[in-house]
């Protein structure tokens, strides 16, 4: 199986590579359109800012490459946000539009004042989703983010922090998670394994 991790101007893509190696998978890290298109599975990870990363994807023609992927593709963190319709981060940035959801900033309320949402939080998933198979109910995943995708028809898992938001989305061949499976211990390993088995 050929797994490609999309290389672009976002940080933290190597930890996904390390996590895959722990599962015995040697992934290719590449920003090359042909290499990405030829993969059996594509992972679109990263930590970054929406406007800067979207600009980079457009300048390098990766926006259309990603939109036209037909193999199972997993967006992680900023990767998930970029697969949504738009993001409030950096103004109102048009994103790839695979999912109809929009990405909004957390607005602190009276009981929760801390943004970013940082640490381990529970994820309530649709039990029929193959991405969440062989996991316990409401498992804890590791999060670090200040923006979140709204809940809608493509939502397959939610988390509550200040408000309820999409922890995971799924439409056709596209899957996306806001948390970091590569940093979520055994639970995260199981989720990555589930994705690789799709």
């Amino acid at each position: 199986m050929k797994v490609v991790i999309i290389k672009y101007n976002a940080g933290n893509i190597f930890s996904v590579d390390y996590a895959l190696r722990r599962l015995g998978v040697e992934a290719t890290i590449s920003g090359d359109a042909d290499i990405i298109k030829s993969a059996d599975k594509v992972i679109f990870p990263g930590v970054g800012e929406a406007e800067t990363t979207m600009n980079y994807l457009r300048e390098h023609g990766l926006d259309n490459v990603i939109k036209n992927l037909t193999q199972p593709t997993l967006g992680i963190c900023i990767g998930m946000q970029l697969l949504c319709k738009s993001s409030e981060e950096g103004g109102n940035v048009e994103c790839l539009g695979i999912f109809d959801e929009v990405v909004k900033r957390f607005v602190p309320n009276e009981s929760i004042i801390k943004v970013p949402h940082m640490g381990w939080n529970t994820v309530t998933a649709d039990p029929s989703s193959p991405l969440f198979k062989n996991l316990t109910n409401d498992p804890y995943f590791y999060y670090v983010h200040s923006y979140h995708a709204t809940v809608g028809k493509d939502t397959i898992a939610t988390t509550d922090y200040i408000n309820q938001y999409s922890a995971a989305l799924h439409k056709d061949n596209f899957y996306a998670v806001q948390f970091h499976p590569e940093k979520s211990g055994k639970v995260g390993e199981q989720l990555l394994k589930n994705f690789l088995e799709l």
């Binding site: 996590a19 722990r22 590791y142 590569e182 940093k183």
Partner: peptide, 8 residues
Amino acid sequence: IAENISIP
């Protein structure tokens, strides 16, 4: 550490 440990 990064290669071997799966928590932050």
